[in-house]
Design a binder for these strands. Structure first.
Length: 277
DNA sequence: ACCCGTGTTCGCTG
DNA sequence: TCAGCGAACACGGG
C-alpha cells in the first residue's frame, strides 16, 4: 500500500496517536524488518516521549525525547507495512514490533511480507542516514523545482514511467502514482525521459502534485480522524484510481480510449493510449 | 497450480 | 564504467 499519500496518512495518525505520549514498553520479534535484526536495539525509545513526526518520501521519521536526549525511529512500510493502534493486550496479525504508550494503547508495526524497515537512529540524526540523504525532493514538503527536474530528466534515456520510480529524482512517487500522474499530464509512459519538453515537465509536476493530493484526500475521507489503522487497502475497497489497475475500462479523461496495461522494468504500467502522447 | 503484487537492493550483462 | 534488467526477499489472494 505505501506510497507518499499512505505514508503521509500514517504520519498524521502517528501524530494524533502519540504526540507527547511516553513509551512504557517495547516488544519485537526477530525479523529482517529490524535493522539490525535484534529487537534489543528498539529498547532505546523506552521511556521517551514522542515529540516530532516527519516524512520524507515514503519514509516516516519519528523523534522521541527522553532525559538522555533524542532518539529517532526510521520507518519504511515496504510493500505491505502498516501502523495499527490497539488497546494494550490486543495483538494484530503480522505485528513485528509494538510500542506501548502511557495512555493504555499500543502502536504496532504490522508487515506481512517483511519488506519494510524499522531502525533506531541515534540522536534523531536523520540527515546522516545515507539512504535518506540520497532522496530527491519531497513533492509536498519541498515542492518540485521544475528547472532541476527538467535537467535531471534531460540526461535519462529511461522511459519516463521508470524514471519516476527513482527516489533520487522525486521522493515518494511509486508504481501507482507514476501511472496516475502521467495520465493526468497526458504523457505516454513509454517516452524516453529526455524527450519531454519543458512544458511537459511542468504538466508532469502538476500531475504528480494533483494525484498525490487527490489520493491523500481519499484516505482522509475514507478513514476519518479517529481511525485506529493507518491503512488504505482492505479487501473490498473500491479502486478509485483513474487508470491504475483499470485495464479494459474506459478512460475517464477522454471517455473514448481503453485503459491498457503494459510491463516496464518488471512493473505494471496503466495508461490510455488515446490521450497520452 | 499459477500468476500477481502500492518497494528496494543486488548481481549479472552488454 | 554504467545503464538497464531480472531475481530475490516473503506471503496471501484471485
Amino acid at each position: 500500500m505505501p506510497e507518499l499519500p499512505e505514508v503521509e496518512f500514517a504520519r498524521r495518525c502517528w501524530e494524533r496517536w502519540a504526540n507527547g505520549r511516553r513509551v512504557t514498553g517495547v516488544t519485537a520479534t526477530v525479523s529482517r524488518v529490524l535493522r539490525p535484526a535484534t529487537p534489543r536495539a528498539l529498547q532505546a525509545v523506552r521511556g521517551a516521549r514522542f515529540v516530532q513526526f516527519e516524512r520524507r518520501g515514503k519514509n516516516l521519521l519519528l523523534t522521541a525525547r527522553s532525559g538522555h536526549g533524542k532518539v529517532g525511529l526510521w520507518s519504511h512500510l515496504g510493500m505491505t507495512g502498516k501502523w495499527v493502534r490497539r488497546p494494550v493486550g490486543e495483538l494484530p496479525r503480522f505485528a513485528r514490533a509494538s510500542f506501548t504508550l502511557n495512555d493504555g494503547q499500543a502502536l504496532h508495526y504490522c508487515d506481512m511480507r517483511l519488506f519494510g524497515r524499522l531502525q533506531v537512529v541515534p540522536q534523531a540524526r536523520f540527515a546522516e542516514v545515507p539512504e535518506l540523504a540520497a532522496l530527491g525532493p519531497d513533492p509536498l514538503v519541498d515542492g518540485i523545482d521544475l528547472r532541476r527536474l527538467a535537467d535531471r530528466l534531460g540526461s535519462l534515456r529511461l522511459p519516463i514511467k521508470v524514471a519516476l520510480l527513482d527516489q533520487r529524482l522525486i521522493a515518494g512517487v511509486g508504481n501507482i502514482q507514476a501511472s496516475e500522474a502521467l495520465h493526468r499530464a497526458g504523457i505516454d509512459p513509454r517516452r524516453p525521459a529526455r524527450s519531454l519538453s519543458r512544458a511537459e515537465v511542468a504538466r508532469l509536476a502538476a500531475g504528480i502534485r494533483r494525484s498525490l493530493a487527490a489520493t491523500l484526500a481519499r484516505f482522509d475521507r475514507a478513514v476519518g480522524p479517529d481511525g485506529d489503522i493507518a491503512y488504505v487497502e482492505e479487501p473490498g475497497t473500491p479502486n478509485f484510481f483513474a487508470v491504475y489497475d483499470q485495464a479494459g475500462a474506459r478512460c475517464p479523461r477522454c471517455r473514448k480510449g481503453v485503459v491498457t496495461r503494459l510491463v516496464q522494468a518488471g512493473r505494471s504500467t496503466f495508461f490510455c493510449p488515446r490521450c497520452q502522447h
